[in-house]
Every structure is written in structure tokens, then in C-alpha cells.
């Protein structure tokens, strides 16, 4: 087991290395950052000098090596836009994104499971059909449009919820949270729904499908035959069996929720890492882009690692498979 974890951890490092290298190769095509760092009438020679000083004229590999050397010392450089250390900017923005991602995932899990179970048990009821229809909205309209529609309805027309930002936040050490204030909670509602809608659809469909399958398995039939109460069968046995893949998917999706928070954060001006990243892309702020990609990469790798380890623990057959290659 330990050898497996060590090996996977080394592979994870390799993944991060690859992410960084690809990212750096990509930045060359993102545009010229210097044009975003100076005013419109800054002369060309001035711009060239800045390029030179930033080392943007060096080969990509050299730039990457320089970046790695810094990153190993937890120095991720200075943001081109804000002239602040990137590590500091990202850590300031991280709580916002994590809170949003967690809320969205929680929302998706709770409603997804409830709706999924119901529509599996009452397959042909009107409510189940309605759930299916609602859940499909989550995948049939682009996120940005859903966000804008929510803003139009709840912020502009009804005036119930704020259209942007995080509301009042409370500082707990280095973490800032919006969960402890009324305005912070209100501000969290629409972005969470927007971000969670897609996951909710996914989970609902998954739960429904798994439930349907499980309900037809022999042991449920056997439980029925033993005369167990329907509710006990549904929730005690069927749902429990359904939840393992659901939690796995939800865990795997957490990473992509963080990645796709980019759009939600842009629409709601949510001051998280995704927004920082979008602004970085718009301004070719390479240090922020690189650090963000590495961070998201790290999150993914960790989630993958955990899921793989869990799989191995749960399913002995996989353990054999995973151990064999050396």
C-alpha cells in the first residue's frame, strides 16, 4: 500500500511538471502581456525593454526552468497586473472559490440525491417527470445564461439577492468567510445554484440509474421476499449501495467544479481564483495563470489519488491489478 502511494505521489509530481510545461508553452500564444501593462501611447522601444526585463524573450524552456526554480521555493512570482506576489493573491482568493465550490457541491448532492431517489422509486409519477425536466435545464442552457437570468430575476426584478460579490466577509486567521454574515450567505445563493445545477443533474441521473439497477438485483428481491418494509429496503439497502459511486463521482467532480467556477465567478463577479484567472487570461498575466493551473492541477491529482486509494481499499480485485505493475 505504502509503495503504491509513494509511486502515485511521484507520478503526481510528474503530472504537475507536465501541466506546468504545457502551460508555459501555451502562454506564448496568449498575447503579449506587455501591451496590457503599459498605457496606449507607450512607445515600442519601451515595450521591448520591458519584455526583455521580464525574460519573455528567452526560450520557453528557460522561462519554465526559472519558474520551477522559484516554485520550489514557494515563490510563484509577481503578478503583472497587480505587482503583488502571486501566492498571496491566490491565497486571498482561495477561500471564496472553495466556499462556493463546497456550497455548490453540497447543493447538488442534497437535491440531486433526493430528486434521483424519488424519480427512481416513482418512475412514472408527474413529479418525477418534473424533476427530470428541471434537471435537464441544468445541462441544456449555458451556465453564463443561467447566471444572467437568475440575476435578472432575483437581483434586478425582485431585488432579493445581490447581483455580485461576496457580501460582508469575516476574517478567521488567513481565511475569509462569507458564511457567517447574512449578506455573505445571501450573496452565496445564486452563484451556488448556477455552479451546482450541472452537477445536480449529473448526480440526479446517476442516483436514478443506480437505484433502478440496484432495485432489480437479487438481494433486494431477496430482501423483499424476506418481507422487509419497503422503506427499509429503499433507504437501508438500495440507497446505501447507490451512494458509493455517487460520492465517488461527486468527489471527482469537485475538482472540475473548482475549474468551472471560472464562468460562474465571472458572471457574478465572485472574487475567487477563477475570476482572478479569467482576468489573468484577459491581461496575459502569466505568473497568475501558471500558478492557478498548477494549483488546480494539484487539486485534481490529490482527488484522483484519494479516489484510487479508496477504490483499492474497496475492491480487492483492483488491488491486485494496481500492485502488479512495478
Amino acid at each position: 500500500m505504502l509503495a503504491f502511494i509513494v509511486r502515485r505521489a511521484l507520478q503526481a509530481l510528474g503530472v504537475l511538471f507536465a501541466v506546468g510545461l504545457i502551460a508555459f508553452a501555451m502562454f506564448r500564444f496568449a498575447g503579449d502581456p506587455v501591451n496590457q501593462m503599459v498605457g496606449a501611447d507607450t512607445p515600442p522601444e519601451e515595450r521591448l525593454a520591458i519584455r526583455e526585463q521580464l525574460g519573455l524573450n528567452d526560450p520557453v524552456v528557460l522561462q519554465f526552468a526559472r519558474y520551477l526554480a522559484g516554485a520550489l521555493r514557494f515563490d510563484f512570482g509577481i503578478s503583472y497586473q497587480f505587482r503583488q506576489p502571486v501566492a498571496q493573491l491566490l491565497s486571498e482568493r482561495m477561500p471564496a472559490t472553495l466556499e462556493l465550490a463546497l456550497c455548490a457541491t453540497l447543493l447538488a448532492l442534497v437535491f440531486g440525491i433526493l430528486m434521483g431517489v424519488y424519480s427512481a422509486l416513482r418512475r412514472d409519477s408527474a413529479l418525477a417527470k418534473l424533476f427530470q425536466a428541471i434537471s435537464l435545464i441544468g445541462v441544456s442552457l449555458p451556465t453564463f445564461l443561467i447566471g444572467i437570468l437568475l440575476i435578472y430575476l432575483f437581483a434586478v426584478t425582485l431585488g432579493w439577492l445581490p447581483s455580485n460579490g461576496r457580501g460582508e466577509t469575516v476574517r478567521l486567521g488567513w481565511w475569509t468567510t462569507g458564511l457567517l454574515t447574512w449578506s455573505g450567505l445571501k450573496a452565496l445563493i445564486m452563484p451556488s445554484i448556477t455552479l451546482g445545477l450541472f452537477q445536480m443533474t449529473l448526480i440526479m441521473r446517476l442516483v436514478r440509474a443506480e437505484m433502478l439497477e440496484v432495485l432489480r438485483t437479487d438481494y433486494i428481491r431477496f430482501a423483499r421476499a424476506r418481507g422487509l418494509r419497503t422503506r427499509a429496503i429503499h433507504f437501508g439497502h438500495a440507497l446505501k449501495n447507490t451512494l458509493v459511486p455517487v460520492i465517488t463521482i461527486a468527489g471527482l467532480q469537485l475538482g472540475s467544479v473548482i475549474a468551472f467556477a471560472i464562468i460562474t465567478e465571472t458572471v457574478f463577479q465572485w472574487p475567487g481564483m477563477g475570476l482572478l484567472f479569467v482576468q489573468a487570461v484577459q491581461n496575459v498575466d502569466i505568473p497568475i495563470m501558471a500558478a492557478y493551473l498548477l494549483l488546480v492541477g494539484l487539486i485534481f491529482v490529490v482527488i484522483n489519488l484519494v479516489v484510487d486509494i479508496l477504490y483499492t481499499v474497496v475492491d480487492p480485485r483492483l488491488r491486485v491489478t494496481l500492485r502488479r505493475p512495478a
Binding site: 447581483s163 465571472t266 458572471v267
Partner: peptide, 8 residues
């Protein structure tokens, strides 16, 4: 506060 998105 900066708000980048027009509609927002």
C-alpha cells in the same frame, strides 16, 4: 469594485 461582465 470592478465588475467585468456587462450584464452584471
Amino acid at each position: 469594485t470592478p465588475i467585468g461582465n456587462d450584464a452584471t
